[in-house]
Design a protein around this nucleic acid. Structure first.
Lengths: 249, 249
DNA sequence: CGGGCCTTTGATTACCCTCAATTTTCGTGG
DNA sequence: CCACGAAAATTGAGGGTAATCAAAGGCCCG
C-alpha cells in the first residue's frame, strides 16, 4: 500500500486544501505570507510541547499522526484527539500555561506559527480571525463527540465510533477511502483515547472483527460492513464537516 | 439563605464583571452598544435552542443555572457543561446546525446576540474577536477537564471533581464561597454530566458525606474538608482561570 | 537472532448498572 | 394549614461490563 505523500511546502497550500478549504483574498494572502512560520519535522513519539510549558506557538499539522493528551498524577493519561493534516493544535489564550501535551505518533511535520504574530495578524485581518474561530469550533465539535463517547456509549460502540471518526477525518485529509485507512495507533493509544484498558480494546476489536463490521490489523483499518458499523455506533459524520472556512465571506 | 441577585441590566456590565473581567476602550464599547442584544428570561427547564435548530444567536448567561447537552437516539443524554453567569453558549460556525441543546435548569436570564451582528462587529473590532477566542478557549478548558473526568477518573473522584469545579465557578460568578454554594442540580442531572446513573451518583454523594469531605443536600453543597476533597480529586483550579480577557491588550 | 513492544487470550475481581421498592421532599390545590 | 401527588432521594439485591492480574505468542528492528 502506501502512497500519496500529502505534504505541503507552504501553509497557504495547506489551508486551501481539504479539510480546511479556505478561500483567501489578496490581503489575507499577504497577511499570511508576512507570518513567521516554520515547518518542523518530528520523529515518531516526540513531544512538540509539554503540559506546563508556557507555549507561545500555534501548530497546524501538515503530515503524520499525533496526539493531544493530558497526563494525570496517577500515571494515567487521557488523549483528547489525534490531529491529522489540517488540524490545528494549541489555539489558546496567550500568557497561559498549557494543560495538555502535543506529541507525534508517527513521523510528523507541522507548521509552527508564533502566537504573538498570529495575534497581530488577527488584529489586521478580521476575516482570518473568523477562520480561526471556525477552526476552534471544529475542534470543539470533536471534543463534544469524544465526551459523548466516553459518557454514554459502551466500550464496543465507543471503539467503533472512534474508528469511524478517524476514518472520515483521514479521508478528508486525503489519507483514506470509504474502504479503510492506514492507522498507526497502538491499542494502548486507542485505550487512552477511549477511557479503556488496552486489553479491553483488544477484545472490542476482536468483537468488531468477528461481527464482520471492521477489521483493524497490521496498522490498517478495513471497513467490512460500513453501514452496519455506522448503525452500531449511531455515527453521524456531519459533525465532522463543521469548522471549514467554506461558508465564510 | 438566598441573597445576591447577580443580575446585570447591560451586557457591558456583565462582561466587565467577574468572571470575564473585560477592559474595553471606547471603540469597543461603542461596538458593543451597537449590537442588537436582548435580555431573555426562561422559566426552569425550558429549552433555549435545540439540537438540530439552525440557530443564529450567541448567548451569554446572566443569571441562573442551565445546561448544554446532547441527546442520543438511545434516549440517554450527555451534559457537556453547566454554564453560569458570564459563561457563553453557542459560539459556533455560522450556517451550521447545532449539535447540542441549551436549556435552563432554574429560572434563567441570558443575553442573546445575533450571530450575524456579532460577526459584523468582529470584522470591525479585532480586539473583541480576541476576546471571543478567549471565551472559546475557556470553554474548551472545561470540556477537556470533563473529558479527562469521564475517561480516567472513577465515579467517586469524578463526582468530587465536578462539585469542586462548579464551586469554583460559582464563586467566580459571585454565587458561592470557599465554604459552599447553592446547587440546584438533581442527581439525575449530575449523572448525565458524569456519565453515571443517578443511583450511583447518590451512593457517591453518600460516600463523600460519610468521609466528611463534602455534603450535598437540600440544594446546598457544603465543603466540610475542602483540602481533603481537593486531594481526593486531584483538583487543580488553575484551568478554570483560563479564558479571561485580563491578559489582553 | 535476540529483545522489546505490541497483541492476544484466560481467569478473576470490582465497579457500576439494572431492577425494584421505600422514603423524603416539594409543589399545588383543597 | 394540611392533604395529596409527583418528583427526587435513598436503599437493597443481583448481574454484567470492564479492570486487573498473569502469561503466551507475534511482529519489528537493530
Amino acid at each position: 500500500m502506501g502512497f500519496m505523500s500529502n505534504e505541503s511546502k507552504s501553509l497557504l497550500g495547506l489551508l486551501e486544501a481539504a479539510p480546511i478549504k479556505a478561500r483567501f483574498n489578496d490581503a489575507d494572502i499577504k497577511a499570511i505570507h508576512s507570518l513567521q512560520i516554520s515547518l518542523k519535522r518530528y520523529p515518531p513519539h516526540t513531544v512538540v510541547y509539554n503540559q506546563g510549558d508556557a507555549v507561545r506557538s500555534v501548530y497546524i499539522t501538515n503530515s503524520g499522526w499525533g496526539c493531544v493528551y493530558r497526563d494525570l498524577p496517577s500515571g494515567d493519561r487521557q488523549i483528547m484527539d489525534f490531529p491529522l493534516r489540517g488540524d490545528t493544535v494549541g489555539l489558546r489564550m496567550p500568557a497561559v500555561f498549557n494543560y495538555n501535551t502535543y506529541a507525534s505518533i508517527t513521523e510528523m511535520s507541522v507548521f509552527e506559527i508564533s502566537q504573538h504574530a498570529l495575534n497581530a495578524i488577527v488584529l489586521r485581518s478580521p476575516y482570518l480571525s473568523n477562520g480561526i474561530m471556525a477552526l476552534m469550533a471544529r475542534q470543539r465539535a470533536f471534543l463534544i463527540e469524544h465526551l459523548t463517547n466516553l459518557g454514554r456509549r459502551n466500550a464496543l460502540v465507543r471503539t467503533a465510533h472512534l474508528l469511524l471518526e478517524m476514518g472520515v477525518r483521514a479521508k478528508h485529509s486525503g489519507m483514506g477511502t470509504e474502504k479503510g485507512y492506514s492507522c498507526p495507533l497502538t491499542q494502548y493509544e486507542l485505550a487512552d483515547a477511549l477511557g479503556l484498558t488496552a486489553i479491553h480494546v483488544n477484545r472490542m476489536l476482536r468483537e468488531l472483527r468477528e461481527q464482520n463490521l471492521v477489521a483493524f490489523r497490521y496498522g490498517e483499518v478495513e471497513f467490512i460492513n460500513r453501514p452496519g458499523l455506522v448503525r452500531l455506533a449511531n455515527f453521524d459524520e456531519n459533525y465532522l464537516a463543521m469548522g471549514m472556512f467554506t461558508d465564510f465571506k
